[in-house]
Structures are given as C-alpha cells and as structure tokens.
Design a protein around this nucleic acid. Structure first.
Lengths: 218, 218, 218, 218
DNA sequence: TATGAATGAGATTTCATTCAT
DNA sequence: AATGAATGAAATCTCATTCAT
C-alpha cells in the first residue's frame, strides 16, 4: 500500500511537473514575446531561460505560434479576472467612476507585459487573437461594469446621458495603455518618464479628474 | 561640348534616378515595417515590392537597420512639419484647444503608418530612436504650441492653471494613438470599428469635449 | 481456488488483450507503411490511429524497423497462404493457366496494401526482406504450381516448351503488380483508371488471353 | 573594349555556372530521391554530394518539394524525348511492334532512376505529379505511336482489332517497369537477377514474342 | 502490461548580408 | 549606379526513442 501510495504520489508529482513545465514556458514566453515582439522572439531564448528544452515548446504548444497564442490567451484571461474582481456597486456613481479609472490605471502600470503583448498583437493586426476560441466575447465584463455605473448616475442626474460605456472605456484604456506602451518614445521626445512614481501618481489623478469632469458636465 | 553636355545630363538623370530609387525604397519600407514590425519585416519583401533589387538597400542604407532608421527619421520629420504648420494664435484659447485636439486627431487617423511605426519602435524600447541624431529635440514644437495657448487662457482665467502643456499633449496623444494603434484588438473585443467614418467623427467630437471640458473646469 | 481461477482468467484476458494490441498495431502499421512508405510513415501516426500508445510499438516490436519487418512478414505470409490455396490440378493445362492468371490478378487487386508494401520494400532495395528469416524461400509455391501445369501441358503438346515457370510467373506478376502499384501515375498520364470495375474486368480478360496465347503458340 | 569583352565573358560564365549549379543539384537529387524515396532523401545529403551548399536548393528550387518536382519534371521530360525520337513508320506493323517493345524495354533498363522515381511518386499517390503544369498531357506521344502502328496493322489484317493502343502500352510498360522496379524482391524470392545481361536479353526477346503473339492472334 | 512525460539528434527552412563584376 | 549569384549562421521544427513509474 505504501508502494501504491508512493507511486500515486509519483504520478501526481509528474503531473504537477508537467503543469509546472508548461506554466514556466508560458511565463518566460510572455516575457520574451512582450520584450521582443512575435518575430523578434526566439524559441531558443525562451527555452534557454527555462529549466526545460526547446523541444518541450513543441511538445506542449505545437510550435512558436501555438506558444504565442497560449500567451495571448493567458494574458487576456488575467485581465478579465482583474476586471471581474473590480466591484463598484457600493460607491456613488461619481466615486465609482474615479475608482474604475484608477484601478484600471494601476492594472496597466502593474502589468506592462500584458500591455506590450497587446501592442504586439496590434502590430500583427490582431490576426492571432481571432484564433483563440476562448477570447471570443471577452470585452463584455469591462463594458458592463461601466454600464451599470453610468445607468445609476444617469438616473440621479449626476452623469450626462449622451455618452455610453464604450466611450468611457475607450478613454480610460487609451490613456492607460499609452502610459506603458509608449513610454519609450514619449520619454525620449519629451523627457518625461511616465513610469516614474511621481509622474505615475500625477497621471493617475489627472485621469480621474478627466473622466469625472467629462461625465459630470451637463 | 556636346559630349560634355550629354554626360552632364546623364549624370543629372542618374542622380534623379538615384533619388527616386532611394525614395521608393523608403516608401515601401515604411509600409512594410509598419505592417510587420521591425523583426517581422523582410528585406527581401521590401526589395521585391520595389523596382530595384535588394542589393540597393545595402547600397543606400547600409542594411536593414539603416533602412529602418531612415524610415523612422522620415516619419518623424513628417509629423514635425505638420505640427509646425498648425497655427492657432488667431483663435480664442478654448477654440484653439479644440482645434489642436481635432487636428491632431485627424493627423493620426490620416497617417496610420506613422503611428504604427511608433508602436513598433516602442516594442523595441525606443532603442533605434536614440540613434537618429536629427530626432533629438523633436518634441518641442507640439508642446510649445500648447504652451502658448495655455498661457493665453490662464491669463484671462478661461483655462485652469494646474495643468501643463505636456499633460494636455499626453491626453490628446494617447487618445489619438489608441484609435489607430489598437484598432485591431479593440475592434475584435468590443465590436466597434474605430476607423469607420461615423465612429471616427464621434470620437473626434468627444476628444474636443474632453479636452475643453477638462481645462475649463475651475 | 477462486483466487487462482480468477487470476488465470485475468492472465488469459491479458494475453488476449496483448494479442489484440499487437494485431491492431500490425494492421494499422500495414496501412500506414503502404500509404506513406517506410520513411514517410510516422510512428506517432501509427500509434494515434490505434487504441494503444506509441510506447507499445517499442514494447512489442522493438521499434519502427521491427514493426515494419513484422508488417512485411505478415504481408508475405498472407500471399503465400493464398497461393497455397490455389489448386489447379483438376483443370486442363490451358484452363489452369488462365485460372492462375486470373486468380493472381484478383488477388493483387484485392490486396493493394500488400502490393504497395512490396513497392516500398523495392524502393529500399529489399534491404529489410533479407532480415526476415521466415521469408527465405517463399517463392517456391507460386513457381511450383506453374511448373506442374507447364509440365502437364508440355506432355500433351498443348504448351510450348521453351518457357519456364518463372518466365510465366514474371509476366503475370508484372502485369498484375502494375495495375495496383502504378495506377496513380498511369491514371494521371493516360486518363484510364485501372482500378475501375470495368477496366479491371477488361484487363483481367486480356491477361488471360496474353498468357494463354503466348504459351499455346508453337 | 577588351575590358568589356572580358566582363561579358565573366557574366556569361556566371550564368553558365548558375545553370551548372542548378543542373548538378537536379542530377544528384534525381539519384538520391530515386535511391531513398521522397521522405527518405535528405536535403543535406543531396547538397553534400554537390559542389554547392544546401542553401542553393532553397535558392533555386524553393525547398525539398520544389526540388522533387523539378526532378519529376526532368525525368518525365527525358522519357518523352526518347519516345518522340522513336520512329517506326518505316517498318511493317509486326516488326514495328516488336521494335517498340524492345526499345521501351531498353529504355527502362537504361534509366532505372527514372523508373524508381515513378515508383516513389506512386507510393505518394501521384500527389506531386499533378502539381507540375508541364506534365499535363504527357502520355499522348507513346500512345499515338502505337495507335499508328495498330491502325496500319488492322488495315492489312495482320493485327487484331479488339485491342487498343493503351492496352498494348500497358502490357509493355508493366513488363518493363517490373524488371527494374521489382528486381530487389523478385531476385530475393526467386533467385533470378533481372538486371543480369543474359536474363535481360532473354526477357527482352520474350516481351517481343508476347506482344507480337498476342496481337497477331486472330 | 502499460503509460505520459521527456528528449537528443538531426532535419528543413529562413534571413540578412556579401561577392564578383 | 547597379546587379544576379551565392552564402553562413541561425532559426524553426520533426522524429524515433527512452525514462520513470
């Protein structure tokens, strides 16, 4: 019985190792793809920064593109989870808005790899995104949260009613994405490092001001 | 003398051809780099879409990177010229602001290749940008134009005084860049095509509203 | 005793399973090797089309080559059995000849996988055939049957005597093998599908005519 | 002027070299593919047996399959030329028939690589053949030559009229192809080396006898 | 008897670049 | 000013096989 138990554990361990191998590849790949882009990333480099070998990429993901798709999926799944965790029903509409803006801002700053992967995917015209079944209607959560807040605010007359959730989401997204995705060129051209803590704090506040200001204008 | 004249003409023609070859390579390269990224672009493809051969890329630009740097420079020179042409002294501060926002918006929509090149460059951490001498202080014009308007507006009390030109520029840029740079993923996830004429018109108006609204709040 | 009986049954079942696994591998392997050739066949594909796993190929056959050798042996054993079942003593020599030709013809048409395996083996210069001990003198039955018929026919003066059994066997074989082994290219080049029922019937008759005609010429 | 002439020669030489490189690759590839099959052939091996490098295979043929297609095309073009060179109008129908049979027989024996390539292609179900545009209606010459002879023979009553050119061509082809394509297994099983000169001569005569005998039977 | 994970060696293919004229 | 041929280095991918249980 000890025998059996041991071998059962062994099997579990192997399975856990398999999962770990897969996860490790995914993690490093996310890093490398986000740093070098799809074509710039090297399968060899990804493997080397791992405990396993290049061969495993093909074993688990079928190839470079498969790995990239998995990275894409994991990245988007990550943001979806964050969004779903974001609750704002307990706040007054105006506060909720600022809260959503700030949380989104923080999420972008804290997950630069994800933002960069999105940039990479856009360079490739989103051609891979469509191949990932599980990413079909991923947009909904973010929009519906804002929808609720806007609806509540419109009811009380606090928020204007000629703007929809997607308009707001786009404003927030564009502002937040830019911080991370364009920090290199913006920093170079204007000498302002958007990733520096004080600048970040300022921009965070400004975004809140802008969003609230815009939606509370009659 | 006939001899000489002929050979002079020949030389002129050759020079003109040379200039044309260079220009054609630059044009196609801008397209290809903006469509496929730096690593994704193929020297072979660029050459094939040209009337010349691959060898000329090495002849004129020294290599793939040299060509990319030239593309980068040309692209930024283009935007600088547009910005310098933008005049707003004849308008009241608030109108000038809206005007700047809308012109910038249009410029981005009308020059997607440039926006995409900037994305590409950011993917590569702006590592090439620094190598182009002529792009040193390119940021100034855009900022100084806004600076003037803000100064005028602050004087009359029309515009708030706790926001600087760079803050405004960043808001406008982020909003405009997003339209073009992220249209693929945004369109896929939310089903809104930011490049469609009606959506574009709506976003254009919204951007003006946001900028003006933000800066006229006390 | 119940214990023992149970374990005996268990063992039988296991053996039967083992036999079944082996047989299944062999069957699928025959198919795959005959469809893709030796080098073209993939161990992975064979395993996938089976209820077992790739590992079993190594367990039962030692490897890809061992599996191929087993396929080769089984295929040739099949034809030998067919040939041995072919009886012609009860027919007049001329009828027997036609009968042998037609039976052989049918056998080839009905066992394309075998014919294709022979082609594959010839592509590889018969290098594996020599390794299968049990295939040593496999040729004899076919030849000796013809030998008998020819001997009988020569005795009565019905059949010519300057042709030996192997000459006849080669004619029949070449004609029959071609039907199956070269149907793709012949069909492509001449637009005649040798596997179509009516063409097959015509060729069958023609073969009989040729063989009989040839051997009855003085 | 000497300058010019020299450089013209140089250019010619380069061109000739290019042609030579291509031709050499094609020649070695024909050998290797015919010896090892499509999947069994190694691009590396082909290159190594050449004065150039593996890279050139991709430069000239685009890849392994492109090279194989070129081999296929060259091989079939070779046989077509041989067939077109074969003239038989000056012979009496019966003699012409024997002549065609014997010439075809010799051609097969003298071009084993071609026969083997055809076998290889059949193993792959002729899937590549269809991709070579220039091989569309290649069959015609062989058939039309026989057609003429048969027509002449039927007119004089020397040859039977219920057999068409394709029937005859198939008989001849199958007999000849078998000699080369199946010599390994046939030799192994029956101990008769079909490629040995004396056996070859015997089979050559026999084929003539069979063809003539068949077609002159009323 | 059976199996999922792993792997090394080698195969094919790609790519920016240089050579020779 | 221009060019076709050539290329080395490296990238991606494949395949039969073995490990550990």
């Amino acid at each position: 019985m000890v025998e059996i138990q041991r071998s059962a554990q062994g099997s579990d361990e192997r399975l856990r190792d398999a999962e770990r191998t897969r996860a490790e590849l995914l993690e490093i790949a996310t890093e490398v793809f986000s740093e070098q882009g799809y074509s710039g990333a090297r399968v060899d480099e990804i493997a080397e920064r791992t405990r396993t070998t290049k061969r495993m990429i093909y074993y688990y993901f079928g190839g470079k593109e498969g790995l990239y798709l998995a990275v894409l999926e994991a990245a988007y799944r990550g943001i979806r989870e964050t969004e779903q965790a974001l609750r704002a029903d307990d706040l007054a509409p105006v506060d909720a808005l600022r809260r959503i803006a700030e949380m989104t801002f923080d999420h972008h700053h804290d997950h630069p790899a994800f933002i960069r992967i999105v940039s990479v995917e856009n360079i490739h015209h989103g051609q891979h995104l469509g191949k990932v079944e599980s990413l079909r209607d991923l947009g909904t959560p973010a929009a519906s949260l804002l929808d609720d807040v806007l609806a509540r605010g419109r009811g009380t007359g606090e928020l204007r009613d000629d703007v929809d959730a997607l308009d707001v989401h786009m404003l927030i997204s564009s502002y937040c994405v830019f911080q991370v995705a364009n920090s290199a060129t913006f920093g170079f051209l204007f000498g302002r490092d958007m990733l520096a803590p004080d600048v970040r704090a300022r921009h965070r506040r400004i975004l809140g001001d802008i969003v609230v200001g815009w939606l509370t204008t009659s």
